[in-house]
Design a protein around this nucleic acid. Structure first.
Length: 299
DNA sequence: AAGCAAATCAACCGCATTTGT
DNA sequence: CACAAATGCGGTTGATTTGCT
């Protein structure tokens, strides 16, 4: 198809949307649904192309959009997801209810990237910048015989998973992120109510969620969150080395790649079926998502 | 207050994929 | 199977806002 042939043939409006246009589109979709986007502008009385209408709806008019600034938890989750998914913004957005791929992409480019660099983490590879520099130097000293890995979003982070040092428990401050949440992430092998909310992959096997990038399986007896969750973690009761003392299982590259490619949207459906309240749903979905992302699992 | 640069955000562009005929 | 249209996605741009001097 050529360049927006629809916009060329007809004299269609471009640029920012006026409140009147918004109202027309909103009214139309509220009453009729969007159906075929290419016919929406005509039916809604808009001088826009369908593509523009679709974008406006998705990024601005949709009623389920969460407006306002991103929370630190959301930012951390984006960084974490990006380390696994790369620049697959729509897939990342699918795991942040009420957020759009466009705003996540904007946030990444304007803010998160910078913050990661400030923490000494290369936003493309999610490796410490010192390591990246070392790699570059090595590659250069090899007389440029080898192409360096793609610098854009790391589509595969198997090297990251395998090489990541064991001390990244503080990576993105994820301890706080997960364990100060209301969830009180507690995964045990018994049949506690919480355990029943956890997908079978997690609750019946020997897997316990790790918020870190390395796919880790821990014996089921481990309880990650005692009753006094925040104190426990705030005072260092939990540490990566604690987890490390458990038998761990690092996925092979092939397994990892296969699993990552299987990550799909069923998240929002399957996980919510077992949840009681919207609040629970929100909190659990995020933390379970982290677990699955860490494992490269889909539900 | 004015001017400038950086940051932010909304929207467009072009390409890839999916769907329909 | 071939083709065209529709849709979805990620990269990019340009306007606006914010912060600093």
């Amino acid at each position: 198809m050529g360049r927006h042939s629809c916009c060329y043939k007809q004299k269609l409006r471009k640029g920012l949307w006026s409140p009147e246009e918004d109202e027309k589109l909103l009214n139309y979709i509220t009453n009729h649904g969007h159906g075929c986007w290419s016919s929406v502008p005509k039916l809604a009385g808009l001088q826009r192309c369908g593509k523009s209408c679709r974008l406006r709806w998705i990024n601005y008019l949709r009623p389920d959009l969460k407006r306002g600034a991103f929370s630190p938890e959301e930012e951390n989750l984006i960084a974490e997801l990006h380390s696994v998914l790369g620049n697959r913004w729509s897939q990342i957005a699918a795991r942040l209810p009420g957020r759009t791929d466009n705003e996540i992409k904007n946030l990444w480019n304007s803010s998160i990237k910078k913050k990661l660099r400030q923490r000494g983490i290369d936003p493309n590879t999610h490796k410490p910048i010192s390591e990246v520099d070392k790699d570059k130097t090595t590659a250069t000293s090899n007389n440029n015989n080898h192409k360096s890995p793609p610098s854009s979003s790391s589509p595969t982070n198997q090297d990251f998973f395998l090489e990541r040092p064991s001390d990244f428990s503080d990576y993105f401050g994820l301890q706080k992120l997960n364990f100060n949440s209301n969830l009180g992430l507690s995964v045990t092998a018994d049949s506690s109510p919480l355990c029943s909310m956890i997908p079978s992959q997690f609750s019946t096997g020997n897997m316990v969620g790790s918020v870190f990038q390395t796919p880790v399986c821990v014996k089921p007896s481990v309880t990650l969150a005692p009753d006094n969750t925040s104190n426990f973690f705030d005072n260092g009761g939990f540490s990566w080395s604690t987890l490390n003392s458990q038998p761990i299982y690092i996925k092979s590259e092939a397994e990892y790649l296969a699993d990552v490619s299987n990550i799909t949207d069923p998240w929002s459906q399957s996980q919510n079926e077992n949840l009681n309240t919207p609040e629970d749903s929100d909190v659990f979905s995020k933390d379970l998502q982290r677990m699955a992302v860490s494992f490269g699992q889909s539900l």
